[in-house]
Amino acid sequence: MALDKPYKDIPGTTIFDAEQSRKGYWLNQFCMSLMKADNRARFKANERAYLDEWPMTEAQKDAVLARDLNECIRLGGNIYFLAKIGATDGKSFQQMAGSMTGMTEDEYRNMMVAGGRSVEGNRRIGEDGDAQAHHQPQGQAGKKDQ
């Protein structure tokens, strides 16, 4: 496709365009279903069984079960849809956003209170900012798992 997509070279950022939307259609529609209290209850009672009701890929289901939002986004999820999973878990937008950086909740919150993440080095892939691939994961939360 010869479309104008200049946003492909921004580090740590996935633009939700028609291509991603097509990939993530059922993942996102599953998320929408969590806006109903009944469905939230059924999901919480047996996550795997509830996910199996949707024609999602196994990789999408695994990413949801692991609450791996970066992977969910890579597989076509959009943050406003994925936020319904967070709501079901009782998580705030700040907790969800922070979870994608590898920081602990405190680390992320402190970064925001201190003025947020700087754009310097984070405008283009290949620069040296903290959002670049070679600096992931950024905080202690991710490091624990390694």
């Binding site: 496709m1 479309l3 104008d4 365009d17 028609a18 291509e19 939307s21 097509r22």
Partner: peptide, 13 residues
């Protein structure tokens, strides 16, 4: 879906 999404993208722009 591919062509339709491509047309949507182009025409909205």
């Amino acid at each position: 879906p591919e062509l339709a999404a491509h047309i949507a993208h182009s025409v909205i722009q």
